[in-house]
Design a binder for these strands. Structure first.
Lengths: 151, 151
DNA sequence: ATTTAATAAATTGAATACAATTAAATTGTA
DNA sequence: TACAATTTAATTGTATTCAATTTATTAAAT
């Protein structure tokens, strides 16, 4: 038997189930977020801002692992929706400060049931959930300043 | 203390680390696949075909959790690259059969070192890797015919 | 003080994802 | 047989992602 190609089998991939389940769960959010006028990416931006308001784009990107190429157009849309404001930092005009509007702050109230709603769709024991959480964070931490990626 | 909004904290999200680490690892593949003329999505299509050649688009989509909207343009590109052929099934012309060309088959040889190359970037014990694998497959299995999603 | 280097955001272009619709082929049924 | 329902790909339109480039601003060095 030739084991030379074992690593190429889908069932032996780590990335594939990661990629597939990520998309699966993001898709789960779609109809739940739609009434709030949010997409999944907009939602995690709002999550970050609800925890820390008045933050620079760079810092926001550091938290969410997203760069200005993704965030700039996204934040402009959130601004048009009246959920955030974007203004240059007066002390250093290279930076931009993102702030929640009152409407953006109030949306938190509407959003607070979403985690439970999504959670009920993921049929997994609390123990497994916690373990999955731990393992994913190992990946994120390992690659935060990876020698493999130039992040 | 008000715990009403605990579920909205990023650190309590399951989806966020799933989403972030998936993107992180897909990005890891970029420079590794580039010399082969493949993107990550093209790569998993090739992985599936190396395991089962001459397969319908629908069946391929079932394996990879992708629909014709994603696969049709992707397969056309792989066809232009000379890695696959697309032909209507003569018995049922609604279906299309995807076959590897000789060149597509030979690419497997070039690709066989990729899993080890990526693996070396993911600093995780064999035990943790296996556990992560198991947990991700729980999510995929649970939602394969979910009551929450209309897949 | 000038010039150079570094940093942050915005822009551009390529490649997905995916919902929704359309078109073609097949199946089931009256 | 006709016709409605179903199935499969393809198409369309919207929303990301991300690498690479550009522009503006600030910091560092001469």
């Amino acid at each position: 038997m030739n084991y030379e190609y074992e690593g190429l089998k889908l069932k032996n991939q780590l990335c594939f189930p990661l990629y597939a389940s990520s998309r699966l769960i993001v898709r789960l959010y779609g109809p739940v977020l739609e009434p709030l006028g949010l997409t999944y990416t907009k939602y995690i931006v709002m999550l970050a801002l609800w925890e820390k308001d008045n933050i620079g784009l760079k810092e926001l990107g550091g938290i969410l692992f997203l760069d200005s190429g993704t965030l700039t157009p996204l934040l402009k849309k959130l601004e048009i929706q009246g959920l955030v404001t974007r203004e240059r930092n007066l002390e250093d005009e290279r930076n931009i400060n993102i702030k929640l509007t009152d409407r953006g702050k109030r949306l938190k109230e509407t959003a607070k049931d979403i985690p439970a709603k999504i959670g009920s769709c993921i049929n997994m024991s609390a123990r497994d959930l916690k373990e999955l959480h731990r393992l994913l964070h190992i990946i994120l931490e390992n690659n935060k300043e990876s020698q493999c990626l130039g992040l």
